[in-house]
Write a protein that binds this DNA or RNA. Structure first.
Lengths: 211, 211
DNA sequence: TAGATTGTTAATCGATTAACAATC
DNA sequence: TAGATTGTTAATCGATTAACAATC
């Protein structure tokens, strides 16, 4: 139906923002919104909103604007909120813990099946009702469960090796929290979350305003 | 010395990456590198590297390339790795815990002075040797300590109010982990880390490759 | 010196913004 | 219908890439 022309990453990365704002509008019982009103809330141009949305379809109505609920539904569909993704966490450290305890993921369609670590003190325990299993059992686990996403919170040393192992098990998505950039040439999808990069940029910008 | 023409965010966000790669090269005892070699490692163009670096100064030498160590030093200086930033964490939940335990921050110049929460069960305890204090004592604490950065890991409900309170205390930098976008008009510097946005984009891209 | 590689200008590409005819 | 607002094309802006003279 909608042309499958390549959507730019810039547009894709704005989708969750639209999703959040529409979700908030629904909570506030707002029924309709124009691109102009939304642009003022989001601090972007109305033009950009209309351009972005029209990558996926004409969801609005001339003279009226957009119906909040149906636009929300459309964006949900685009983002795949209806799709469920099976995930595992590699690394039961602080970040692994935080992710395992993050309740919102399940709500958004991301189920965490298990956590893997090499620390015998952690293996056998549970974090937020999710089993911590030994890394050695990963291959076996993967053969018995279809896993979509591996969340990597392991120490950075051997991150590329781990990523290769994970993708060789057929896992197509990687959410990488290690500071090392993952460059995989096997078609896997990698999202990097470089926390220290973000903090360093904050530091730079702070120094910058000070003069 | 170097012209203070505005540096674009695109360039600034690449600085920590250069920093990481140069740091790795130093560990590998590489003494010099050309923009071409570096571009192959980083999977970006040599042109972009030279353009980026020349925003800050001519760090290379024709016919030779760049001295790894001195380029590393220059980028450290630009990023302010020598500067120390005093930080507090608001919210002693899972993410607050993870941040408090992240040892790399101190190494990069970010000192965490205290953690604040409203949960009486947490107040008075320590996380990684950092005191968890009651939110009510924040104003007093801020009047006695110069704080540069507040790391916000509190539940999203009242994030804007908290951000306003924090900036009214003279804190100029905000590292925001709540899913809500902070729009402050008081000159504070905000870096957003929207984990669920990142995960949703990963989900989208996974669906996308499946067809 | 000759070769290599920078710094920098110019060309290209892509993303954002403006404009407006279509239409609800 | 008249007014409002979209969808979409065209114009602008900015970022990336290419090219090459300068120079180590």
């Amino acid at each position: 139906m909608v042309e499958d022309k390549r959507i730019s990453m810039a547009v894709i990365r704005r989708l969750p923002r639209y999703f959040r704002y529409l979700s908030d509008l629904m909570k506030m019982d707002v029924k309709r919104i124009s691109s102009k009103e939304l642009s003022e809330r989001m601090h972007i141009t109305a033009s950009q909103i209309r351009q972005d949305l029209n990558c996926f379809g004409g969801f609005g109505q001339q003279g009226y604007g957009y119906n909040v609920e149906s636009l929300y539904e459309e964006i949900s569909k685009i983002l795949g909120t209806d799709t469920r993704f099976s995930c595992i966490i590699l690394g039961a450290g602080n970040m692994g813990n935080a992710l395992a305890n993050y309740e919102n993921f399940k709500k958004r369609g991301f189920d965490i099946l298990a956590i893997f670590d090499i620390d015998e003190n952690k293996v056998g325990k549970q974090i937020n009702n999710i089993d911590v299993m030994h890394m050695d059992t990963l291959d076996d686990f993967a053969s018995k469960n279809k896993i979509d996403i591996a969340m990597l919170t392991v120490p950075n040393k051997n991150i590329t090796d781990i990523a290769k192992r994970v993708t060789s098990l057929g896992i197509k998505g990687i959410w990488n929290f290690s500071p090392t950039d993952l460059m995989l040439d096997n078609g896997a999808v990698v999202e990097n979350v470089h926390l220290s990069d973000s903090l360093m940029v904050l530091g730079y910008r702070l120094k910058d305003i000070r003069g």
